[in-house]
Design a protein around this nucleic acid. Structure first.
Lengths: 339, 339
DNA sequence: TTGACGGATGACAGCGCTGTCATCAGTATC
DNA sequence: GATACTGATGACAGCGCTGTCATCCGTCAA
């Protein structure tokens, strides 16, 4: 087995009869190199199979082409879609991504931000607005573009892409009331800050409608799942048997409720209205189809990268820019109770 | 805003009153440094907030602590779980992961393998056994551990973790026949090599059982989704109205079939048996619960990293090692037709 | 014709760390 | 008491690339 030796920039330069620095420029800013030299260099690169060494580049230039992405959990459905958006938008650029998992721990998040920043990333994407003070300070001092993802808040550290979870949830709750449901409950798993806002909106909406508040809310620290939705709904029924609708903190739970209702011969939407959150693809395919608050997760990831790329290319948004992607209430059969 | 200057190894060394090289050793191999020196170094690191520069380390040592993971799609449910397993297993190690997305293109895969290998990764994980000859050659020549993930095949390039998709699918098909279904069909989306094997097992199983082969198979190049499951099932019924069971290439499709059957008042399991593949969490929560071939995706990811770490620590498996994780047929209500 | 200017290219040093070899004290062996 | 060996530490060079400054040539206005 012929051990293929590492090809360096200098070897490409020798073959193309130019100096190494010219090859370097041809790679990073082709406009600065004459077309003839460029052609010879390109050919040499192809012939030798040259691949640049990112470590050397990072060391010499003091920056990397890595975008750090710090999210609570890679496996969560919602983040999976956001991640896909990020990868989509990175396609064809020289940037790559490095994922960090906070596992919902502020300390881990702080440490990750510190480590990522120490590598002088091209940009940083963090989930939410609820960083610890130390983390926040580090992000403010960061020299790279920073995007806070998932929600828009009053004071972005740098830029933000997301939506108002309060408003989105409120729309769901209002819809249930508008459909004539009079005893709606809230079901949620692991309550991150965005979930808290959604719960708050639910409570406010009920209070405003003057609906007696025995606070029909069931949550748990467990991570979300469809089975959990079944269990939470069972819990809810034993506590508040008169419940006639549920606002679910996410679609997994909503689907669990749908299945559990069927098991118990509770008719949806007549006896029970179900509204989910996120609008996963399966909600429209379900029988009955399930109302959900649609959030464009793919676009959220894409736009985050877009903002970073724009900034890197000099034509970016100013500090404090917040991009509100909004939401859409997808009204479906699970809350269609007729007049 | 005080611009926090970059702390280097030398500054830590100065503060700890040792030479830089000793600090370097203390970080990489603490046993080689006296306890006193180590203590001073640790304190200096903490006081200064030193974070090593991975680019400099990579450049100097000629290797990185990055495990390359090359999979067809990050967003696919199955890979999302595998990915989580990978991140889980990486926790607490110095390794990090770099994802590459082939988007099911062999050329992209080849290029990714080339680029990843040129960075001298700590290890490489690739999905499947169907690399192009050039990609295969590159992997054979690789100096790092290589794990082929998802399936076990006859001749691993280096190591492999997965299962026999043929056997797994065959178990599902056999189960349908054993339950007395006599006109089973196969439903699949985007057919990757593993899906092809599953389809082959289905066909072989039917042929062996002497079931007349009007080849009730519906597939499509579209990526999988629940709605797609609905559509494929509708297609199937118009082509082969006598179908009494479906073996689905994955659980999304199975769920779509379940919903579509309900819409059409087809009774499950009496008039239609449904068997999925992967055993996503929701299958057990569905009503009726859905039979599926369970694959331990989390463990697959974890074990892949485990193999790489073992190898890096010198106590690894030899070339050619294949770890068969097997599968479990989860028999549930969707195929429980009674006697 | 002269000087100024811009485009293309190159020389040099150094980014922060580690591999290799050298050094040196302290202990074990004969 | 000389030799070999071990463990802890250090000096030095260099990994492959880029930032900075310098150089060279041709073009253009005066």
């Amino acid at each position: 087995m012929e051990k293929s030796r590492k090809i360096t920039l200098s070897e490409v330069a020798a073959q193309a009869r130019v100096s190494p620095i010219t090859v370097s420029r041809a790679l990073r800013d082709p406009a600065k190199v004459s077309p003839e030299a460029r052609a010879r260099i390109d050919q040499a690169i192809r012939e030798l199979g040259y691949v640049p060494n990112p470590a050397a580049r990072a060391l010499a230039s003091g920056r990397t082409d890595v975008v750090g992405v710090i999210i609570p959990s890679v496996s969560n459905n919602v983040f999976a879609d956001v991640t896909r958006g990020i990868y989509d938008a990175l396609e064809g650029s020289a940037l790559s991504v490095q994922m960090g998992n906070t596992r919902y721990s502020p300390l881990t998040e702080e440490e990750l931000i510190r480590v990522f920043l120490s590598q002088r990333p091209a940009g940083l994407i963090v989930a939410g607005h609820d960083q610890s003070p130390a983390a926040r300070a580090a992000l403010i001092a960061a020299e790279c573009p920073v995007v806070q993802l998932m929600e828009v808040g009053p004071a972005p550290i740098d830029m933000a892409v997301g939506l108002s979870h309060y408003e989105a949830s409120r729309a769901g709750a209002a819809h249930l009331l508008a459909q004539g449901y009079r005893a709606p409950a809230f079901l949620g798993a692991q309550m991150d800050p965005r979930s808290q806002q959604r719960l708050q909106a639910f409570r406010d909406c009920l209070a405003q409608a003057g609906i007696g508040t025995d606070d029909p809310v069931v949550t748990t620290p467990e991570p979300s799942s469809v089975s959990l939705g079944c269990r939470l709904f069972a819990d809810l029924l034993s506590r508040s048997p008169r419940t006639d609708a549920v606002l679910c903190n996410n679609d997994d739970i909503a689907l669990g409720v749908l299945f559990e209702a069927r098991r118990r011969n509770i008719r949806v939407p007549q006896d029970l209205g179900i509204c989910g959150f996120n609008d996963l693809e399966m909600m429209s395919a379900a029988e009955p189809s399930v109302t959900s608050v649609a959030v464009d997760r793919l676009r959220m990831g894409r736009d985050a990268i877009g903002l970073i790329r724009d900034r890197l290319e000099g034509r970016g948004q100013p500090r404090g820019y917040a991009l509100d992607l909004g939401f859409r209430l997808m009204t479906r059969d699970s809350t269609r109770r007729g007049g």
